[in-house]
C-alpha cells in the first residue's frame, strides 16, 4: 500500500487547488491573527479566551465546522471527485492491480493529511509565529501548551472522521460542485440541530457526534471521562465510516 500512498502524495503535491488553499489559508490566517493581535478585531467569548489565550482567538474561526467544511470539501471536490468525473483517472488506479480497499485507504490518508495541513497546521503555526513576533510569547507557557496539545489532538481525532465523511461524499457524488454543496448542507444541518432542536432524544444523539465534539474539545477544563468519551466517539465513528467507505468503494462501478 505504500506505493499507493506515494502516488497519492505525488498527486496532492501537483494539485493546484491544494496550493491555492494553502496560499489562501496562510493569508487569511495571518490577517485574522494580525487583526486580533493589534486589537482591531475584538473577539471574545471563545474557548481560547477562557483558557487565557485570547491572542489565539482567531483560531476559533478555523475550528468552526461551518468554516472548515468549505476548505475540506473544496479539497475533496478538486482532489478526489475530479478523478471520477473530469479526468476519470480513477480508471487507471482501479485497473492497476491494487486492492480497492487499499486504494480507498491511501486516498483517505493523503486527503486527511492535506486537509490537516490546510485546516489545522497552517493556522496554528501562523498563530504561534505571530504571537511570538508581537511579543506575546509568554502566553505559550507549559499549561497553555498542554491545553493546546490536548485540544488539538482531540480535535484532530474528530477531524479524521469528518474527512472520512467528506471523502465518502466525494466518492458518491463524483462531482466537485456536489461534494461542496452536500458537505455544506451536512454542516448546516448539524448547526441547526445544535442551535435550534430541543428534542431530548435528538439532542442526546447530537451530543454523541463528532460535530458536538468539535466545540467540546476546546473546553479549558475537561475531565478524564470527557476525554475518553471524546476519543471513543472519534474512534467508533471513524471505524463505522471507514467500513462503510470500504464497502461502498468495493462495490462501486466505475463509469
Amino acid at each position: 500500500m505504500s506505493n499507493l500512498i506515494r502516488a497519492e502524495l505525488y498527486k496532492l503535491q501537483r494539485n493546484k487547488t491544494f496550493w491555492v488553499l494553502i496560499g489562501t489559508i496562510t493569508g487569511l490566517s495571518a490577517l485574522l491573527h494580525f487583526l486580533i493581535l493589534i486589537e482591531w478585531w475584538q473577539l471574545s467569548g471563545t474557548s481560547f479566551d477562557s483558557a487565557g489565550l485570547s491572542e489565539l482567538n482567531a483560531l476559533s474561526t478555523f475550528t468552526l465546522p461551518l468554516f472548515f467544511n468549505l476548505i475540506v470539501s473544496t479539497l475533496a471536490g478538486f482532489y478526489i471527485s475530479n478523478e471520477f468525473s473530469h479526468h476519470n483517472v480513477i480508471k487507471n488506479q482501479m485497473i492497476s492491480g491494487n486492492k480497492r480497499s487499499h486504494i480507498f485507504l491511501a486516498k483517505f490518508i493523503v486527503f486527511t493529511l492535506g486537509s490537516l495541513i490546510v485546516t489545522i497546521l497552517i493556522p496554528l503555526v501562523i498563530a504561534i509565529i505571530l504571537v511570538m513576533l508581537f511579543g506575546h510569547g509568554d502566553v505559550l507557557n507549559f499549561t497553555n501548551l498542554l491545553y493546546l496539545g490536548r485540544a488539538f489532538s482531540l480535535f484532530t481525532a474528530q477531524f479524521l472522521c469528518f474527512t472520512a465523511i467528506v471523502l465518502l461524499i466525494a466518492i458518491v457524488t463524483e462531482d466537485s460542485g456536489k461534494t461542496i454543496i452536500f458537505t455544506l448542507l451536512l454542516s448546516i444541518v448539524m448547526f441547526v440541530i445544535e442551535k435550534f432542536l430541543t428534542y431530548p432524544f435528538i439532542k442526546m444523539l447530537y451530543e454523541n457526534t463528532i460535530f458536538h465534539q468539535f466545540s467540546e474539545v476546546f473546553k479549558f477544563q475537561m475531565t478524564n471521562g470527557e476525554i475518553i468519551k471524546s476519543i471513543l466517539i472519534a474512534s467508533v465513528s471513524l471505524i463505522i465510516i471507514m467500513l462503510c467507505g470500504v464497502l461502498l468503494f468495493n462495490r462501486k462501478e466505475i463509469k
Binding site: N3, L4, A7, Y10, K11
Partner: peptide, 12 residues
C-alpha cells in the same frame, strides 16, 4: 512524464 510517474508509483 508526470502522468507516467503517477502510474509508476501506483504500480510500484
Amino acid at each position: 512524464y508526470e502522468n507516467l510517474e503517477v502510474h509508476r508509483l501506483q504500480k510500484g
